[in-house]
Nucleic acid binder design. Structure first.
Lengths: 334, 334
DNA sequence: TTGTACGCGTTATCAG
DNA sequence: CTGATAACGCGTACAA
């Protein structure tokens, strides 16, 4: 009757057993007479007993929560990732604590510290750029899986796409369609992911016997605005303008696409990294390397579950496959 | 040295004071000699002491966490909302626990129960459709703010946009541009938000002396696919096809826009509810009622903070203003 | 100003 | 199979 404020001791008293026994029933301990068990369970129901997660966590030393730290929860890629992680976590009856770094290493340290302090059972981290050796000294060696990119200075599991291979695939797609002057618009190479994509781009070109024209490489676009500007710059190069572009991040595509449309240069082939809403409603549709955030999130959550089960596991790197969604951008105009 | 496993007692011993004093320093209790204080703080630093949030929460009876339950974290609207809430929460030094209902009332009950059980300090809830009287019986009367829509059967704060007014504004925009046959594509009216938008649509039309042609109303589109189909249906009505459409949800726009483009009917004026990436890159740009999720999230978080400070506050409804982003869709073709 | 002792709700150790 | 009792790490009456 004491709605909600019923504690395990109340249940024990009501069922006429000791606290320990009530606890056993709560934890499905087999060593309890089935008759006693049903009596306790009945009491639990009548008292609307709800276990106190705080107390359990304090006792257990760890909380049934997984911490997820991404760049920005609002980013379409990461929000899809969050969703996948939440799905996987809830299947494991765990809650998800989220936080965004906004690419700020200090904020990253703060939110990670907060989560460790809360004794999350595991941590899923999309690291910012820069050294992460400080993570090695994390007090309770909380199981951790790096997501989407590695972090220099830390030895931990990593779940990501094979960026270099994906970029190579994208470039090869354009090459196969006859393009020879392929521009690159991407984020700074100090983000490992971006560096790998740029490397893949270069590799694909040289593997086909082409020189990389550095003037066509704009690896300095952290946001849509600069990406749009870079696009206009590239297209205005008289005589040496690219006939195709590789946009190495969704964020970049969000600037490249409008720039292409605004300048009327929809004849320029485009392959983007990461799918986005409306990509196929545009004319022409944008071919994308579909960087499934859901697949990455799911794989990361699964890896974390494995590690939680056996903390002694050697650290591994898991590459989530990507696929190219062809949407009619990519043809070389006659 | 005992890295991370240092507990407050260790600090006390190291500083040569009692546990009580160490606790006082930790909580910035003024009643402690400044000399003693610095000694304790030094000890904390040397031992790399980190307070155990679990223990504090257990003692305090409530956790420095706010629970946020939305429809789907991956939805652009809600992910922006989550981001805003997280920002506001971190300013209050609180963590955010997220969960998605996926519009499933059972899942909603489960995740809400889980959060209450975790003793979140407050709850931000985007309720599913249907009765929520069960929420009134929540054990510890956890402070709660409903977000984006009301929930029948619960008396709680609500932070949302004025859906009816926003829909009226959108329709008036189209009327002002000369349209008289305005179609409606939206979600089911059993979602209160949708019902209000539909009502606003009707009101605006009747206020202008127009009859509502029920054949132009398709309030049965919960997803982009059905919205796209509805769009094609409406446009194929010979002689009575609409010259303009109101898409009452971002999800719907994601189906309406491609349908318009695919059928080449870009002459049909469109006003959408909720902004989305690429809305202005499309030709013509889509005019939208900008339903700022960030503003809603922020306002909700602020309201929750107020209520946490004073649980006795009367419940209120806060309407977050919306604005119309004109983007050149809406003109009546000559 | 500082210290002692108890309790938050659970689980684990040991007896019986 | 079951039951007293001691922790988990911290906050707080109450006393000194």
């Amino acid at each position: 009757m004491a709605d909600g404020k019923s504690i395990l001791r109340d249940v024990a008293v009501a069922a006429g057993v000791s606290l320990r026994t009530a606890s056993r029933v709560l934890n499905d301990d087999p060593k309890v007479a089935s008759e006693t068990r049903t009596r306790v369970q009945q009491a639990m129901r009548e008292l609307r007993y709800t276990p106190d997660s705080m107390a359990r966590s304090l006792r257990a030393g760890t909380d049934a929560t997984i911490g997820l730290v991404v760049e920005s929860v609002a980013d379409p890629f990461f929000s899809e990732l969050v969703e996948a992680v939440e799905r996987a976590a809830s299947a494991e009856r765990k809650s998800v604590l989220v936080a965004s770094t906004h690419r700020d290493p200090e904020r990253e340290r703060a939110v990670v510290a907060q989560m460790l302090q809360r004794r999350v059972s595991g941590l899923l981290l999309v690291p910012t750029a820069g050294d992460h050796a400080w993570l090695e000294t994390r007090s309770p060696r909380t199981p951790m899986v790096l997501v989407d990119r590695a972090a220099p200075g830390v030895d931990a599991d990593l779940v990501a796409i094979d960026d270099a291979a994906a970029a190579r695939g994208a470039v090869e797609h354009l090459l196969a369609h006859g393009h020879r002057r392929i521009g690159y618009v991407g984020d700074h190479p100090d983000v490992p992911t971006s560096a790998a994509r740029l490397a893949g781009y270069r590799d694909a070109l040289t593997a086909h016997g082409l020189d990389v024209d550095e003037l066509l490489v704009r690896a300095d676009c952290p946001d849509p605005v600069t990406a749009g500007q870079a696009t206009r710059d590239l297209l205005s190069r008289n005589g040496s303008a690219p006939t195709a572009l590789l946009s190495a991040a969704t964020r970049c595509s969000l600037g490249v696409v409008p720039a292409l449309h605004a300048t009327g240069r929809t004849d320029v082939a485009l392959v983007g990294f990461g799918d986005f809403a409306m990509a196929d409603a545009l004319q022409p549709g944008v071919t994308v390397v579909d960087h499934s955030a859901a697949a990455v999130g799911l794989a990361a959550a699964e890896r974390l579950t494995e590690r939680l089960a056996d903390p002694g596991l050697p650290t591994t790197t898991t590459h989530v496959p990507v696929r190219l969604l062809q949407r009619g951008s990519g043809e070389l105009p006659a």
